[in-house]
Design a protein around this nucleic acid. Structure first.
Lengths: 185, 185
DNA sequence: CGATTTACTTACTACTAAGTGAGTCGCCGC
DNA sequence: GCGGCGACTCACTTAGTAGTAAGTAAATCG
């Protein structure tokens, strides 16, 4: 599928790092055929972000169905990032954020919205965890949520450039434990 | 100067986001003249990383000359990132890390080395601070150092995509306080 | 069955990228 | 005044980019 091939390239090489010809080549068709489905590359980019955000939010909803408490959910959240990096990819919106200034206007809003949705979800988990007395952290939940998203995105970026997807595991675990402590009741 | 113009573009748009013609245009010369100084774009890229790393390490050495203790040094470290973002830029090696898979081999090593040097410096400050009893943190200094670098790089990335350089200030301060606590003796 | 739609291909345009080689211009020591 | 040299420019090549226009085979619909 076009979106699958384009998504993998975008997560590895960035949006400006692949061409219609690349995607067409993998699928055994011509570049013009990709233009049939996505007239402009911007259309493809917007669709890519929409689908990625949709699936990401679905994964978060799935995590919420585990009744293992706020701490386990935060660990599961970090686990999503870990699996993406294990495939040699970055977070789509993370790599797009780096290319932000080169991207067409239509793609920018949805990228910010992705991070906003992440923070919203984390904020909810943190608030609930503190309320239930199973989590402790400093300041407002939203601040911790923003720091958590940032720490995971950054840890991915640096881990890839230093050759170790394993390094990410321990770094993300430390960042999570530091930003937010589990309490045993 | 060529390197100044190219560096600003690289920090805003990424290495693949600018061309010789862009840089030449700003300087009022032709692209061929840039090729005279940097035959291949890779040469320019390598030089850019070298100079950035050099200056970054010089700034770290400058911070060490403040005798205000480990905690103040860590805050100064975060302050470097803050000032870069305030100019509308990202960390050069942060944005290059996002483009990592598209970059020529010769540029990759130096990018990893930049992060290595950051971790080394932070590790030294953390060790010293713990030794002196003015800092408390969990686990090995190097782990905290890696988490700190990652958290700052990621916070920058996300802050820019969300329109707020101010958001970075509070996020980085929270990440710093969470990963490493100052002790009053 | 004929009309239309879907998913393409072929062949192309217009443009931009990096990179090259030959030639020019101004300055500096002699 | 003259040779040489560093710093360029001009004119170019090669290779790739997004995007378009026209045509086609096969499936779908009324």
């Amino acid at each position: 599928m076009i979106l699958d091939a384009a998504e993998r390239r975008a997560q590895v090489l960035g949006f400006n790092g692949f061409s219609y010809a690349d995607v067409a080549g993998e699928l055994g068709v011509t570049a013009a055929s990709i233009h049939y489905h996505f007239p402009a590359k911007t259309d493809l980019g917007v669709r890519l972000i929409e689908r990625y955000t949709q699936r990401f939010l679905a994964a978060l909803a799935q995590i919420e169905r585990h009744p293992d408490g706020a701490w386990a959910r935060l660990q599961d959240y970090a686990g999503i990032y870990e699996r993406v990096l294990a495939e040699g990819r970055l977070c789509l919106c993370g790599i797009l954020a780096a290319e932000y200034e080169t991207l067409p206007e239509r793609m920018r809003g949805p990228i910010g919205a992705f991070f906003g949705a992440n923070e919203d979800w984390l904020t909810a988990q943190l608030s609930e965890g503190r309320q239930a007395g199973v989590l402790a952290f400093e300041g407002e939940p939203r601040g911790v949520a923003a720091a958590l998203t940032g720490a995971l995105e950054g840890a991915m970026l640096v881990a890839r450039a230093r050759g170790g997807a394993e390094a990410f595991v321990s770094t993300s675990a430390l960042a999570l434990r530091s930003l937010c402590q589990p309490l045993s009741p």
